[in-house]
Nucleic acid binder design. Sequence first.
RNA 1: GGGCUCUUGGCUCAGUUGGUUAGAGCGCACGGUUCACAUCCGUGAGGUCAUAGGUUCGAGUCCUAUAGGGCCCA
Length: 871
Amino acid sequence: MPKTFDFKEAESRLYRWWQDHGYFKPEVAPPDAEAYVISMPPPNVTGRLHTGHALFTTLEDLMIRYERMRGKAALWVPGSDHAGIATQLQVEKMLRDQGTSREEIGREEFLARTWEWKEKYGGEIIEQLKRMGASCDWDRLRFTLDDGLSNAVQEVFITLYEQGLIYRGPRLVNWSPGLKTAVSDLEVEREEEQGKLYFFKYPLEEGGFLPVATTRPETILGDTAVAVHPEDERYKHLIGKMALVPMLNRHIPVIGDEYVDREFGTGALKVTPGHDFNDYELSKKHNLPIVNIMNRDATINQNGGQYAGLDRFVAREKIWTDMTLAGMTIEVKDHTMVVPRSQRGGEVVEPMISTQWFLKIEPLAEKAINAVRNGDIEIVPERFEKVYYHWMENIEDWCISRQLWWGHRIPAWYGSNGEVYVGKTAPATTPNVTWTPEEDVLDTWFSSGLWPFSTLGWPEKTADLQRYYPTQMMETGYDILFFWVARMIMMGLWFTDKPPFKTVYLHGLVRDKLGRKISKTLGNVIDPLEMVEQYGADPLRFTLATGGTPGNDINLDTARVERNWRFVNKIWQMTNFVTSNLDGDLPFGAPPPSELDLPSRWIMSRLHRLVATTQRLFDTYQYGEAGRQIDDFLWSEFADWYIEISKHPLYQGNDTDKANTRRVLRTVLDTSLRLLHPFMPFVTEELWSFLPHEGEALIVAGWPQADESYFDEAAEATMVTLIDLVRGIRNVRDEYKVEPSRKISAQAESKLYASALDQYRYLFARLCNVADLQILTAGQTAAEQSAIVVAGDVTVYLPLVDFVDLAAECERLTKEKAKLIEQITKLQTTLGNEQFVSRAKPEVVERERTRLAGLQASADQLTERLNGLCP
RNA sequence: GGGCUCUUGGCUCAGUUGGUUAGAGCGCACGGUUCACAUCCGUGAGGUCAUAGGUUCGAGUCCUAUAGGGCCCA
């Protein structure tokens, strides 16, 4: 095999190979295999791969590969979203650059251009997902504007309309003047900003005035009442009187309502139902008229009298100036307030009366709440269930129409007779009635909400729908829990009567290494494609998978990607070692424990514990921790110890030793590559191909099962002692500055481990250059001028005549003993506590006792040595 | 205003249902070319687990409060 991993060459080759063999298709599993399905959160069709995509791809591919290896019919349905506003904005920008606009070219031409744009750039994100190693079934690729999905959207819309759940009407909505469309509550972001609070005099019909404060003076033009608290001694006598709208002189009532906060501003509130949500509610209660003072672009309309035509912010200045001249203003104060801004455009959103389509969502929400409550759907991490309930229980009707062109056109027609027709095709022509089609399109999330079943063919009763619906896993970011997940649950239950998925796994946001949100303006963009270029997909994937915990944000440190690139190399080198030391035909699997030497029993025990741990962690969705454990096992147990130790039997052993060691090496590596494959598919597949193996590809190889017959506590305990001794000896050598190449001799005494030491003395030769180890038997004494190392009941004497300084050795040992005594004292206190012995779990007590015995043995050794050496 | 979350060595992060001496990587110091790997190996320094109480035989882990960071909803 090559000396290093050429990931650039291998990744594309392996990906093609997998795809050509149909491994990404669920049909590779037997027809009766249990299905495991993930619907991919569809990225925006014209998007470019960012770290968020990289994260979901990593996690979902991990889940899919794992289940595929477990023999399930694993299907990952890929797709992309037309992303109404986002895409339309991009195309509009292109048109601007070309010196035209969508208004100029018209709807039909605009849509044609957008489809062209989609054809041109829509494939990019797909190719980028492939570079991450995404094992989706690309034959089942879907796009939200595909015919099938559009049909599903129409079906759903019409059904909901017929069920009386969709209605159309004028209502106060969030209006984005920049995009010239309504947006939903979720698409509005509220942030605290520095603004001003304007105090002014509201003139009363009978003379005098009522002091009022507002943050948006231009809305005075739309006032239809002034409200005070009914128990406010200052103003309550004015309730029922009339006031005059400044500059317009419209007559409006003074009303009393407990909603008014007496502490805020002047304690009197101007009521603008046409441009404020709270005022809108108030107006319904008091039957106030609603005056809309703005056009679609947020300029003032004819209801604003002399201010008509002015931009809302210009009008704000103008009216204030005019009022000041008229002596109606009091003062202006700095004021921190919450300003609603459009999630997309960023401009200030204006509450405006507008005729829109709404979905009455409570009935759907009720089912969705129950599905989570009764456990049909599980949300991981669990804490998000609370967030989900809270939102669902306070859900408001969903404004589903958008004044855009790119999207699913609402299937409605307006008759000249005032009739509204909803259906898939235009209504039949009727005498004297002309039908005009609805211009609006549906909110992007309306079609996304159908994703898990629309992608499988619904409403047609397709074979895929039968076989793969409901899906198992919905893996996505917590930031779209309401936007998307909640709506899928509602739509899924309403239309298929089944929860669309069993589990919702929510991941966090990917941030930069300092925990800041990644943004172009901050200049901290981490481009996953660049990472893939530089290090390959595997290191990036491993970093994302192991870099955090479920539901929490990940601070992506590129240094970790680099480290994991080295991990990839490390595994490569391990495999190189193993394959170059294999020889001849060996039976697959490892020999039974009884036939193995101590190091092999140890590594097999560790391996199977790792398999068990990985299983437990996967079962609880703790993929990151699993990855870290596999990493740790491979590098710091298998490579650092077992491989080094194995060189002895491989080079010096007899045929049986050699064969056993080879089989163990190959088994450990094979099993580890399987465990690692969902994390790092490319390098593991490539390496597996170099190992003798059964089966055609790692991607469809079996997932390991822990075999408890390999669990071996005794072997583990002995190996830990031997490893401790090796470390101790290295340590002493280092402290006494014994050149690493210098061979030394040693003597050891022990009751418990004498035979192990005797049998595995080669460990010390290999691992710490102890050329000659003599096991002391009863009566034999150790060389005087020596340093000692203690572990368990073992004492190793290192006669370093030229190096050991008696005083220094005494000091070293005294320190070591002090450490031991400290622990022993602590343990004795614990064990001496009757409460502990009676209340703690028996195995805990037992473990502590064993530990104490070991520590005491070591301390005894040290004491004896100190007595002899240091008077 | 309501809720969630985080705070562990210089940096980035782990840490089953409370139970060994709180771990890893990066960085740092020192030392290493023997046949898998210098994309490496060995050794080491570095943490009162934000603070204060509490529960418990036992708390990084559970509870309460406080401080600071982040997020969601209103």
